[in-house]
Design a protein around this nucleic acid. Structure first.
Length: 257
DNA sequence: ATGCCTAATGCAATTAGA
């Protein structure tokens, strides 16, 4: 079973790229972020034609998250993050699918830091850490998949010295990631690729993708009972090079039955 | 310190992204 996460940066503007990637890689469960679409404007039909059911939490202009599943029923378990300091922002949705609990998250960017946006990022992260603690405590197979807007380590950014004061790399942000790992979650991509340069985002400026000036900010954290079933993981980085691509690339894990 | 690019909104120019 393949579980993927992809920040699409506008699901309707990105639909040809999204459908092309789904057809090419056929993931079983997909977490999407940055739909940038109102609830009524989700392309349910086009995804259904490819065999995907969906649940989603839309919003005008910004944010928005969705979970897709191919060939399995989706049982929604949460819509919105408990304790979100600003519930008007659509950043969290959670569902049980074929024996796996998938939490789809879009953690706030937080720039500029310091400031109110960074405060919101950290407050949102606290609420998420609390939710992650509840989920791992169940012992169930859980994946926390999404755009964390956190660069976990210097190896996860092309030039760490340029990012020291950025909300994605500040110590407070990295500590959030560390606290999740300390709860017992496994960073699946780093487990399988301990030394590799591994990015999931390249900005649209300065020819960043061609220069491989990227960041690793999209992550799949798995609970112990899912970690024991991991058989592989990766980034579909070539998708970032497609015409009219998102600035993120999809990341995925493979789970034994 | 800012623009470089892109999407959404809404139909010009602003906001947000990271």
């Amino acid at each position: 079973m393949r579980i993927a996460t992809y920040n699409v940066n506008g699901i309707n503007g990105r639909l040809p790229v999204l459908l092309r990637w789904l057809e090419a890689t056929r993931p079983d469960i997909v977490c999407l972020q940055e739909l940038k679409a109102q609830q009524a404007n989700f392309p349910r039909q086009a995804l259904g034609d490819l065999g995907y059911e969906a649940i989603w939490l839309g919003q005008k202009s910004w944010n928005g998250v969705a979970v897709l599943a191919r060939g399995s029923a989706i049982h929604e378990t949460r819509r919105g993050l408990p304790g979100d300091p600003d519930p008007s922002q659509s950043r969290y949705i959670e569902a049980a699918i074929n024996g796996v609990l998938a939490a789809c998250l879009y953690l706030p960017n937080g720039n500029p830091a310091p400031g109110p946006r960074f405060d919101y990022k950290l407050a949102w992260a606290e609420a998420f850490i609390a939710q992650a603690a509840r989920l791992i405590e169940t012992g169930a197979p859980v994946v926390l998949a999404g755009d964390y807007n956190i660069i976990p380590a210097p190896a996860d950014v092309y030039k760490p010295e340029r990012w020291t004061d950025d909300a994605l790399f500040r110590p407070e942000a990295r500590l959030v990631f560390r606290r999740l790992i300390d709860q017992g979650w496994t960073d699946a991509l780093r487990l399988h690729h301990p030394e590799e340069t591994l990015y999931t985002f390249w900005d649209y400026f300065r020819n960043a993708y061609a220069r491989n000036a990227g960041l690793r900010i999209d992550h799949l954290l798995v609970s112990p009972s899912l970690a024991s079933r991991l058989s592989g993981s990766g980034v579909d980085h070539e998708v970032r090079g497609w015409e009219r691509s998102s600035d993120h690339a999809p990341a995925w894990i493979e789970i034994a039955p």
